[in-house]
């Protein structure tokens, strides 16, 4: 009996694998192998974590936005990110992990969030560079999720990508305004770019052979790390240079022969260290998240007992 069941699961898993590799979709109520469920959950959970940790560096500037227009745009952008977090945590909850557990794991450092949100912000120019280039790097990854085999995630990504494209415009507009401004404003943007370039180049992760990338095999994502980084460079290097900014990598160049960008190898050691909680602001941000979460505990309790 046991052997027969095992064989059945194996067969079902193979059929499932064939289904997703040929572009088939999976709904929340469909049968799926445990490994697939775990992989999708982990992927979505990290995405959700990144959304709500990503709001912390930007919200530091909500009170300091230099005009009414920027104030409204930034509050609205951060609000979008919180909204994405909420949508994504709901998706992850459907896959079997309660929201409280995900938040606990995040705050305890048991789960991860994107490298770029472990770094400090220094000036208003950081707000522009984050919204423009960090969001640009993120949207490339996110667009590669529109064809995700897990259909509820793919559908949610349509809304998220739509909103992210406005964030990029908002960020570009900040950068452009400053580049058209005073000498000091231009210097602020250059300094911000210099600070963010390293983390941006690490953002998509080290090149990984297709056969070793399980998320690719399950068609959770459709593009590999290096492909995304190449796309980012192709799209944004010309735009950055057009603005009169310089990129802090003397080895950066487009190789006509191979059709690929050459660049100084990003520090994968730094990336590993940062995402495991050793970045310059990792612990401070997690502690801040924890502080606010704990202070809100009585509110959540009051809502639960009232309803």
């Amino acid at each position: 009996m046991a052997v027969e069941t095992e064989a059945t699961i194996e067969e079902r898993t193979q059929a499932f694998r064939d289904h997703v590799t040929s572009g088939g979709k999976v709904e929340m109520t469909d049968w799926m192998p445990d490994e697939y469920r775990r992989s999708v959950l982990k992927f979505i959970e990290m995405h959700a974590n990144s959304e709500i940790m990503g709001v912390l560096p930007e919200r530091e500037w909500i009170n300091r936005a230099p005009s009414v227009r920027r104030k409204l745009a930034l509050t609205s952008k951060v609000q979008d990110e919180v909204g994405h977090g909420q949508l994504l945590y709901r998706l992850a909850e459907d896959l079997g992990k309660p929201r409280e557990q995900m938040l606990e794991d995040l705050m305890a450092g048991r789960t991860k969030f994107h490298n770029v949100f472990h770094y400090p912000t220094h000036t208003w120019a950081d707000v522009g560079i984050i919204a423009w280039l960090v969001d640009a790097a993120a949207i490339l990854s996110q667009k590669a999720l529109l064809t995700c085999s897990y259909a509820p995630y793919a559908r949610t990504m349509q809304k998220i990508c739509w909103e992210e494209s406005f964030h990029i415009k908002h960020g570009y507009d900040i950068v452009l305004s400053m580049m058209n401004g005073t000498e000091e404003q231009r210097a602020m943007v250059q300094e911000a770019l210099d600070r963010w370039w390293g983390p941006l180049m690490q953002f998509h992760g080290p090149p990984t052979p297709v056969e070793k990338d399980k998320d690719l095999a399950w068609r959770i994502k459709s593009k590999g790390n290096e492909q995304l980084r190449q796309e980012f460079l192709s799209m944004y290097v010309p735009r950055i240079l057009d603005l009169g900014l310089s990129i802090p990598d003397p080895n950066l160049r487009y190789d006509e022969e191979t059709g690929r960008w050459q660049y100084t190898e990003p520090s994968w050691e730094e990336l590993r260290s940062v995402v495991t909680g050793h970045g310059p602001r990792s612990q401070e941000r997690l502690a801040f998240r924890r502080l606010n979460y704990d202070q809100g505990e009585w509110v959540r309790q009051a809502v639960m007992t009232a309803s």
Binding site: I52, R59, I62, Q79, E81, V82, G296, V299
Partner: peptide, 20 residues
């Protein structure tokens, strides 16, 4: 301004969005 200080840190994500 004062209430926008809740953006990103309100007790619940749903209220975070509403307060924003």
């Amino acid at each position: 301004y004062r209430d926008s200080e809740w953006t990103g840190i309100a007790p619940m994500l749903e209220e975070d969005i509403a307060m924003s």
